[in-house]
């Protein structure tokens, strides 16, 4: 058994409530963040959010409510029009372009469309993420099978994406995001293309990963999942933060 799995098994069930005061150091801090793609129309307006290390957070809202912008700003794919964002100790406003890759090595990403390379097997897709940040063959050959086992694909590591179901493809994508053990995992509609049963499996996997200490942020409009998981919920509506609730539900954002 790998050390990761044994750690997962030792994890005690988390307490029923976690008051904010007891949270650990900040993983994400957004202060007065606004983003306008066009003048006079805010994609995000004056957002203030703090996420502590180890939290599991849903960001909910309709299409166009600003969820994706939220995620992309944390990745520094887009810069805020105003305000300050600190991720894993990096002040993104002051981060040089050349340092952005090193920020991203601390952030795992999962997307609705999986973003797997069709001409690479599951193993190669995950290995690619390590290869391009210069990890040695030895590291790749030990970590990749381990993380694929963690996501439940031990029997399919040499299958190509087209030979895998949607849920399995998303598991490869999660494995790729997590293989480098980033402290922060961002997911943009990770279950958007999957049926409810498969979605639940992915959510449970993400929750398991969260329990290893990985801060997990999930942008979704999957009402059922949010209500089922009972985790912190940040609701966005037309760029405004309308609700930030511990152990929340999707709620009525209409």
């Amino acid at each position: 058994m790998s050390d990761l799995e044994s750690r997962l098994d030792q994890i005690v069930p988390e307490p029923q409530f976690s008051p904010r005061a007891n949270r650990g150091p900040l993983m994400i801090s957004m202060r007065n963040v606004s983003k306008r793609y066009v003048p006079n129309k805010a994609a995000l307006e004056n957002i203030n959010v703090e996420v502590a290390a180890g939290e599991f957070v849903f960001i909910v809202g309709h299409s166009g409510s600003g969820k994706s912008t939220f995620i992309r700003m944390l990745l520094r794919e887009v810069a805020p029009s105003s305000g300050q964002i600190i991720v894993a100790g990096h002040d993104l406003g002051r981060l040089k372009n050349s340092k952005v890759p090193y920020l991203r090595r601390n952030i795992g990403c999962v997307f609705q469309d999986f973003k797997l390379l069709p001409n690479k097997t599951a193993f190669e897709n995950v290995a690619f993420a390590l290869q391009v940040i210069g990890k040695s063959k030895h590291v790749i050959n030990t970590q990749v099978p381990e993380v694929l086992r963690l996501v439940g694909l031990e029997g399919k590591i040499h299958n190509y994406p087209h030979e895998l179901s949607g849920g399995e493809q998303q598991r490869v994508s999660v494995a790729r995001a997590f293989v480098n053990r980033p402290p922060l995992l961002l997911c943009d509609e990770p279950t958007g293309n999957l049926d409810p049963q498969t979605s639940l499996g992915i959510m449970k996997l993400l929750e398991r990963i969260n329990r290893t200490g990985t801060t997990t942020l999930i942008a979704t409009h999957d009402q059922e999942m949010v209500n089922y998981m009972r985790q912190r919920v940040i609701a966005l509506d037309e760029g405004q933060l309308v609700r930030d609730q511990d152990r929340g539900v999707y709620g009525n954002v209409d």
Binding site: P101, R104, F128
Partner: peptide
């Protein structure tokens, strides 16, 4: 596609 993934996982420029 490869390039966008490389950027996401933090391959240096």
């Amino acid at each position: 596609n490869e390039l966008s993934i490389m950027r996401l996982v933090g391959a240096s420029n």
